[in-house]
Nucleic acid binder design. Structure first.
Lengths: 191, 191
DNA sequence: TGTACATCAGTGAACGCGCGTTCACTGATGTAC
DNA sequence: TGTACATCAGTGAACGCGCGTTCACTGATGTAC
């Protein structure tokens, strides 16, 4: 064979990684096959040696995006003092740095309305990702019973998603911080 | 002239109305010139008798969308008991009916991430619309001083926007209601 | 050890499609004489 | 009052462009003999 055995796997991984950034940074239609392959250093013709269709790439990209942000937030939560894990998540998610880096952030803030409108093949994947994201985060949420933690997850993530989205529409850092800070205050004083 | 004097104005209004629904229902790229003109009962060729460019249509559609939801929420707020205006807004925004009708809802829930990524010509318009939407809603927000009401606006709308977006990803009404209800509980117990 | 062939990731031209935009044309009505 | 012309919203073919997808080809390496 022309390439090392692990070569194809690595290229595949890199394409998904690049697409996952592009999708979050520029929207579901931002990860054009030719653009993503160019990012990876290849030409568009080779794409179908790695994926059955553009849809497959989108699904894998979304999985990768949820995995990446899940790791980031779980990492922040695990380093926090006992009982404050959810606060660490809120502070990470609502930080100016996080807000500025759409392409490495949560696919919900980057894509939620587009995901809700996506064709069924994508939507079912998104639903599964959202459920496993929730199950992973619920462990860090405030509340005694599982049901309380789930409600906290939905309330906290709703506020964070909306706040980052609104902040990203605003051009000035000071205005952005006002939105992020208002959401942070609401959440940190409510649970 | 072939048409009544007010004819052109009415057709223009109808195109904007149709585009405003399409943009919210199917995204910024959902209001294709040919599709919108078909909605209005015309063919695509006549479009440029009414608009200088697709961008002009998008800007007018967004203005119309913010106007429509602003009227709806202000109407709900004005009918409420004194001091509970903001609660009426929260209940309206987080109702299942509102959640189901993307195309008549708030452009923030339908489009926020796309608006943040839009080209500067659209973004500056969006910023102006967001500011005037905020100024209109701030009057109904809880809090004593103007600054408190602004912070309440950002916190409340962040939560509402995120909750409706997440709910819309979920297929089952019961799951949607769980998200909307969690956000409603958070907000109604926090101000 | 040397030669012929198989394998397969990657190339780049080509396709059909939907899009925004342009443009010569239509045809009903208003206006000039 | 009747005729020729001007106006202008609307039509539909055509354009260039970016997109997802296909496909004949390349060329380095592994394998069979």
């Amino acid at each position: 064979m022309r390439y090392q055995p692990q070569h194809k796997t690595e290229v595949h991984r890199k394409i998904v990684q690049d697409a996952s950034r592009r999708v979050r940074g520029e929207g579901l239609s931002g990860a054009a096959v030719a653009a993503v392959m160019r990012d990876t250093g290849l030409t568009h013709g080779g794409f179908y040696k790695h994926f059955g269709s553009k849809d497959d790439l989108l699904r894998e990209s979304l999985h990768e995006a949820f995995r990446e942000i899940g790791d980031t937030l779980a990492g922040a939560a695990e380093q926090a003092q006992p009982g404050t894990a959810w606060k660490a998540i809120v502070k990470t998610y609502l930080s100016p740095e996080y807000c500025e880096h759409v392409e490495r952030g949560c696919p919900l803030t980057a894509l939620a309305p587009e995901l809700a409108r996506a064709p069924e093949t994508i939507r079912s994947q998104v639903l599964a990702e959202l459920v496993s994201y929730k199950d992973r985060m619920v462990a860090f949420m405030p509340g005694r019973r599982r049901a309380d933690k789930e409600r906290a997850f939905f309330a906290i993530f709703s506020t964070m998603v909306g706040a980052v989205e609104i902040a990203r529409i605003l051009p000035e850092p000071a205005m952005r911080e006002k939105v992020l800070g208002s959401a942070r205050d609401l959440l940190l004083h409510s649970f």
